[in-house]
Design a protein around this nucleic acid. Structure first.
Lengths: 243, 243
DNA sequence: CTCTAAGGGCTACAGTGTAGAACTGTCAAG
DNA sequence: CTTGACAGTTCTACACTGTAGCCCTTAGAG
């Protein structure tokens, strides 16, 4: 076989041989890796394939990203930087809704990457910007800090969970096989499930998401004694559980 | 090397040579695989290791489970069968709380297996029993079917998401590195985040879970016009809304 | 007894992540 | 200029993976 061009000059470059030193290549590798993971999913993703896609030796990839895990983490980070951080509004409810929508949108854009955000729960700048909106919203309602922290993290977990479930097909409308399995169930044993089959069939994930997030927000409003727009005059001043 | 005992007599058996035909071995394989995955996590899990653990050829494993994916699916199914399905109570709120707690408990017991429930969203008997409780609870509040279906699935997604986030360490108390990163943030840019650092430090996942689920439930209650403990106002109103 | 089919094993192949050493060009110091 | 350091790249090699294809053994049916 032909002897490989020595030294690495064989790769494509924009300038003839402008500065080859800094960065630039790492970015190109990440580009290719990101595109490949987004396209093929984690199963069809390998360091060797990424290297082949940009005409480079596999070990070059690992020279810039110490191991495959680091590369995946970098991909997850890059995905996170694409969330459009919501600008704070007047209403904390709107803010929460927007953050939730932004993360769900992220999942829709990169369905085969999104699950990494669980594995490498990010602490990047983009993430801090979003979570700040969440915490500010919750604190603005007058919740105690302990409760705001817990509810904020739970809100995150909820939103990520919904989005992940959606990308994994949990909220997709029933296919024929699934419907057949449900209709085959004993209506005496699981009447509610059977009664909802038509509803599952016509399920609209957007609506489900909106109403679920709405329920959570309304529930939080319940804890705050009803300030803001919450029309919950009663049930005020529930003693919040302390940590 | 020593010649392998032919025919597979080398494995442990309970009876001397009682019936060897049906099942039994498949179960033993699944046992070993389950234990290995629970112990090592998916990264350290391989068909060959499972086979080695019970002194059997790797291909024997694949003879019973067509491929690694099927084996993982079987493991996830088995984990699901261990959820203690909650017996319906008088209060739909209590029912929802119990289902949520049951799944979170599952995640706690098998933290390295739990994430599979997203990939292979189960439709086994155990799952139906739990979801039936959820749907019955929501229908008993008088919600429209479309809304009950959406909220029920979202409730599931939320609970799974919280539990997954928890097993992945998203809700663990801050370690020193994480705290250092947070304190290094600009308090002018993310004041709420910085203000909550002590709260993150002292975070109690149990409390966070309880209050988040409580918020969701309270929010659902606001949708129903406040008829709380009304034992189901006769599901006779089936015709309420068709999706 | 023979026949059959299922359970189990062996070999082989294509692929994986990555450690280690060797090479190549670039750049600063002598 | 020469010399060295050095980051970037490549090659080689190893241990490991999932699994397709073929074969052997054995239990049970006839």
């Amino acid at each position: 076989m032909e002897q490989r061009m020595p030294g690495g000059h064989s790769r494509r470059r924009r300038g003839p041989q402008k500065r080859r030193k800094r960065g630039l290549d790492k970015e190109a590798i990440l580009d290719a890796a990101f595109a490949m993971l987004a396209r093929e999913g984690e199963a069809g993703f390998s360091v060797r394939k990424v290297a082949a896609a940009i005409g480079v030796d596999p070990m070059t990839v690992l020279h810039h990203f110490r191991c495959k895990n680091d590369l995946l983490r970098a991909i997850a980070d890059r995905a996170l930087t694409t969330v459009e951080l919501p600008s704070p509004s007047k209403s904390w409810k709107t803010d929460l809704r927007r953050v939730a929508a932004a993360y769900r949108d992220l999942a829709h854009r990169y369905p085969r990457i999104f699950h990494l955000h669980f594995r490498y729960h990010a602490t990047g700048a983009a993430d801090h910007a979003s979570s700040e909106v969440v915490y500010r919203a919750l604190l603005s309602t007058g919740l105690k800090k302990a409760q705001a922290a817990g509810l904020g993290l739970a809100f995150y977990a909820f939103v990520l969970g919904f989005a992940l479930a959606e990308t994994e097909g949990l909220l997709a409308p029933l296919n024929d096989a699934e419907e057949a399995e449900l209709t085959a169930l004993d209506p005496g044993a699981v009447p509610a499930t059977v009664a909802l089959i038509p509803a599952f069939r016509a399920l609209d994930p957007d609506t489900a998401f909106a109403s679920a997030i709405g329920a959570f927000i309304a529930g939080v409003a319940t804890l705050t004694g009803g300030k803001e727009n919450a029309r919950r005059p009663t049930t005020a001043r529930r003693r919040v559980a302390k940590v």
